[in-house]
């Protein structure tokens, strides 16, 4: 029972991070390897707002989430729009370079000490007992809840709203979409904004749970195999992939070797790439040359 709970929490962490990879890839065909750093930036945003709005934890959370959205838009406006139409390698490298820049900047601005935003917000991480003898931390429960909310919101947004329809159109065929009067830069910026928002949310929740330190970036990097396993352009796939990767990781750690934790997602990824490179739910596509 406890294992099932652990899998659920880890899968929702991965899923919450993954939808950022999927949103960006689906709209702009770029794999953002700066996602881990953007998550961390979101978490530092919470750390900053927590001290700014002392005693109003909910306002601080909302402000930090808004900040993350703005950061995503800014990243697109400042750097990534120049990479539209460039080769795959150039765009991926630009995100890697952005990640390095952000990591250095965050070390300069916030230092390298572990921070505890939960304490700054004045909350306790209570442990909740579940039927069946399992326990889950309050933040873990919040993680699962917010993953559900985020995915529900994203599905509703992509299916039901005009902007969501535009985003799907731009992802399917940018040329046709542009000719029908859809402003691609607006759509791309929005997808970067949303991705950073969800990633930032994941970063904040992980930081609330486990403290804010540089390992957050590694969690971000470990989540992208989940996105690939599910299929890089499918949100349902991101959920399924997260579940697969998280169960593989938890079970192997439990029964084989705890040291495996950092490589399990990559093993799963390699197996998937050999069998079905476009992922569980992804669309098969003619992959771009360098």
């Amino acid at each position: 029972m406890q294992i099932a709970v652990n899998i659920a929490v880890l899968a929702s962490i991965y899923a919450l991070i993954c939808c950022g990879y999927v949103l960006i890839y689906r709209a702009t065909r770029v794999l953002s390897l700066a996602h881990g750093e953007l998550m961390m930036l979101g978490a530092y945003g919470l750390y900053a707002t927590a001290s700014l709005f002392k005693g109003h934890p909910l306002i601080a959370l909302a402000a930090a989430a808004g900040l993350a959205l703005a950061v995503g838009l800014a990243v697109y406006a400042a750097l990534m729009w120049r990479m539209t139409g460039e080769s795959v390698l150039a765009a991926v490298l630009a995100t890697i370079a952005l990640g390095i820049l952000l990591r250095g900047a965050m070390m300069l601005a916030f230092g390298t000490l572990t921070q505890h935003p939960l304490r700054d917000l004045g909350w306790e991480n209570a442990s909740i007992g579940l039927p069946g003898g399992a326990r889950i931390s309050a933040v873990g429960a919040a993680l699962i809840l917010s993953t559900g909310l985020v995915y529900g919101g994203l599905f509703a947004f992509l299916r039901g709203t005009r902007w969501g329809m535009r985003m799907r159109a731009a992802g399917q065929n940018p040329l046709l979409a542009a000719q029908r009067g859809i402003g691609l830069h607006g759509i791309y910026a929005l997808s970067w904004g949303l991705a950073t928002f969800t990633g930032g949310l994941a970063g904040m929740l992980i930081a609330l749970d486990a403290g804010l330190e540089s390992t957050l970036v590694i969690i971000g990097l470990k989540a992208f195999p989940a996105a690939l396993v599910g299929g890089l352009d499918s949100l349902v796939g991101a959920l399924a992939g997260s579940l697969v990767v998280a169960s593989a990781e938890v079970l192997l750690i439990q029964y084989v070797d705890p040291l495996l934790s950092d490589v399990v997602p990559f093993f799963v990824l390699l197996a998937m790439l050999v069998v079905r490179p476009w992922g569980l739910f992804g669309t098969r596509e003619e992959l771009d040359r360098v």
Binding site: F266, L269, L287
Partner: peptide, 14 residues
């Protein structure tokens, strides 16, 4: 079998 992005990712995994 893989090209572009997917190849980069598989080498990263390795």
């Amino acid at each position: 079998r893989l090209r572009g992005l997917y190849l980069a990712v598989s080498t990263l995994a390795l």
